[in-house]
Amino acid sequence: MQFSKYQGLGNDFLILEGRSGQLSPLITDPDPAWVRLLCDRRFGVGADGLILALPADGDADLRMRILNADGTEAEMCGNGVRCLARFLADSDGNSPGTIWSIDTLAGVIRPQLQSDGQLCVDMGPPFLRSEDIPTTLETGPCGCPQGVAVVGDDELEVVAVGMGNPHVVVPVSDLQAIPFDRWGHALERHPLFPAKTNVHFLQVHGPRSLEIRVWERGAGPTLACGTGACATLVAASLLGLCEDSAEVILPGGPLQISWRDQQGPVLMTGPAKAVFDGVLSPDLMSADAAITSPATVEPIHPQSSEASFDCASDCVDTCRQPDNCLRDEAQQKVMDFLQNTSLDSMLNLASESLEQRTRARFERDSR
């Protein structure tokens, strides 16, 4: 199976192309253990997360699913959506000014390719109500949930902001002096955040310069978090610590964040770059996690039935559709492809696809 690896300020992702419906249902709804294996930096490829580019359900150009390194699904990821947009531009040869509408669990996100190769993303308006984030913190004087989080013997002043996913911002005087791992791990799982949370420790350098250290939900310490940078700017602005536009410095580099209208969207501008393309070895593809080849096998579409059901939850004890099992059908198509296609042919298919994408990337960069 072919994949691409992209990074945004060191926050790296594996991307699987499935916009034409060519991915098996076993890939589009993957086993969390398989995601953890792929993202493992010693036993797999290594990444902070897995991004699936899928056909859109509605009017959007495509749908994005993003799985954290621990196998859990995230509602949205700012660096991830920039990486996906860069992947789309590289794959399709898009020119500056192109805007994609990408459906996510946090709603439709619209990144735009800039003339300098960076991506400006309309992240939508922030969520400032406790129930929308979610958090049990109550709305404070700043207009968003705030309060004290007790971590061991420490009492931390915190502010919560939602960007389609939950974030907590913790202002500190010195980022290097805090017990980062202990506080980050504890706050991610703190009872104040029933769905867990991303954690950002904030040091203010000036009204237009913020610096944060990131502890991501489901991933731990990372070099960058796009939605976290947006949440930090919103929190700092509401607290009166910065202006409505500022540079947010992360361990992997800076992002430009602006929130000009407190009723409007947050805009994030930053880079995303290709790292490499590759093909997963058979050892990383279990029998239950295989891909159909778009060149040889038609996409698998579930057949309609009067009594629809979810295989993952309804077929735990026994198959409810043994005479027409979608899982068996998918596995049989994969086995037929593997048995009837030589290794040289598979490598040629992968090589041709990689060559086309690489050529498109060089042609774009030379313009």
Rank of each mutant, 00 (worst) to 15 (best):
L113G: 02
D132A: 14
S24P: 02
G97K: 02
C315R: 09
L267I: 07
F309M: 03
F193P: 05
A312M: 12
V45L: 14
D90A: 12
D29V: 04
A85V: 03
L192V: 05
I102N: 02
T269D: 06
L267R: 12
D310G: 01
W183P: 02
L113N: 03
L343S: 14
A287K: 10
G117T: 13
V81S: 03
E157M: 12
I109D: 01
P171A: 05
A350P: 01
H185W: 08
S304I: 10
E75Q: 15
D314M: 11
D122M: 06
D31T: 04
Q114D: 06
W183M: 06
V151P: 07
G8T: 04
I102Y: 07
G278V: 12
Q146P: 00
L280E: 04
P207M: 04
H205F: 14
E363L: 14
I66M: 15
Q176P: 00
V316T: 13
T72M: 05
D61R: 07
P294E: 07
A47I: 06
Q262T: 11
Q303P: 00
D103S: 15
D244Q: 13
Y6R: 01
L175D: 02
L23F: 09
R36E: 14
C242M: 03
P179M: 12
L52C: 03
E247S: 11
F87N: 01
N340D: 14
A33K: 13
E211H: 07
N79H: 09
P221R: 14
V172G: 08
I178S: 12
T292E: 11
P254I: 09
F87A: 02
S351I: 00
V334N: 09
S173N: 13
S245V: 08
